[in-house]
Design a protein around this nucleic acid. Sequence first.
DNA 1: GCCAACGTTGGC
DNA 2: GCCAACGTTGGC
Length: 141
Amino acid sequence: MSSSSRFWLLKTEPNCFCWDEQLKAGIEPWDGVRNFQARKNMYAMEVGDLCFFYHTGKERSVVGIVEVASATYPDPTDSEGKWPCIDVKTVKSFKNPVALKWMKMDSVLENADFLRQGRLSVAELTKEEFDRICLLGETQI
DNA sequence: GCCAACGTTGGC
DNA sequence: GCCAACGTTGGC
């Protein structure tokens, strides 16, 4: 891991693409992003950066960890070729999925940017926030 | 370049 | 299912 590593949180609606599918695939494109801030974050990603895999909808929990496995390339689901995607590789499942409500109650996380900007599908976390969520999830890298 | 109208996300 | 918050679009 390089010293410039950053940490990210990737949101997905599990009806659309869920952790089980990520586990089966091992490596999958993270495509379909259509938001400028999320795109900016994708361009800032580097291979090897760690990302949480978060389920929105009914679950609202961090369920696992993936790592960035490619540079950005054109999103195959974008017919106009304007949006990028990246590949993500499965790292591990959370022993204990970390629910949004616990993160909101946690003193380390309650004011985190990724919780305040609710609509951002690719958000950046600090190392402290990343480590804290791993602790709450009883999961070590 | 402003801003009203509209669309979408995602928690509740 | 509702709606707040936020993003995008388009008329001016």
